[in-house]
Amino acid sequence: MSTSVVSPGASSGGAPIRSLEAPGPRIGEKIIKAVLWATATLSILVTTGIVISLLLPSIGFFQQVSIWEFLTGTIWAPAFANPSYGVLPIVVGTLTVVFFAILIAVPVGLASAIYLSEYASKRVRKTIKPILEVLEGLPTVAIGLFAFNVLTPLIRELTPFLPWTGPFSIGVAGITVGLLIIPLVASVSDDAMRSVPASLREGAYAMGATKFEVAIKVVVPAAISGIIAAFVLGISRAIGETMVVLLVAGAGNPVLSFDPTKGTQTMTAYIGSTATGDISQGTITYDSIFAVGALLFLMTLAMNVLAMRLVKKYREVYD
């Protein structure tokens, strides 16, 4: 008598004994696994593609201009008859935008997040949060126009003691970008703070902490990794923002200057204003776009690495 477990048959009195082997090859499962693998790989491929497409023309560029000259030169004049490729003026332009954007967006965004997460009633939060998320998606060209038409004159009016010249200002561009990223910083920080367990808040209240002390000494430190992530997202957007900067700071010839009242170019504004139809491939100007793009990529990468270090150092782990 066979006692093999895989042989179908009838057990004594119970349900019939069934085979333990797979009924078929389960092809569907294999296909799904392959499709999911392909989609996951796609983003890696795209990123790699971007890096390569930035690097190849950059190599061409650096065969004609030394890296040293590029990184330390103080005159950026690629279109001139006697061209100069010192990238510092437009790097300073970008950093100025980032500086003013951080100055505006970090305190205001964090304060909004504390309000939303710790102070606002359910009803207020339910109203404000979707509005914030809509603001995040506003086309930046519209915000740029608003800033050029309304914000620039307003800021000039309020600060007559500053040496304003011309219609453009890199400082106002930075402030505008700051306003632009407040919703992002606020919304992501708010999510991070709301994921802090209520039991931690209760613990602090039970020791006689005020609402503000609970927010500042317990909730913000516990949510710090999410809050830093919000800042990084915001700063990345500030570095990459092109349209607002083109409209508000102008696309004029950049000069190495730390004066926020003057118009100048940023790295993205240079790329945006140069990469137009009348530029021919293979020229050094064409290649310079990619060199600036590669530098931009490296700067963002460095900032992300720095942020990850910060998060690791200051993260408060709870479970």
Partner: peptide
């Protein structure tokens, strides 16, 4: 209420130390 809780402390069901 803030002053009250400095005089009357509380320990909760689930241990809730701060992540510090």
């Amino acid at each position: 209420p803030v002053q009250v809780r400095t005089v009357i402390g509380m320990v909760f069901q689930k241990p809730n130390p701060f992540p510090k």
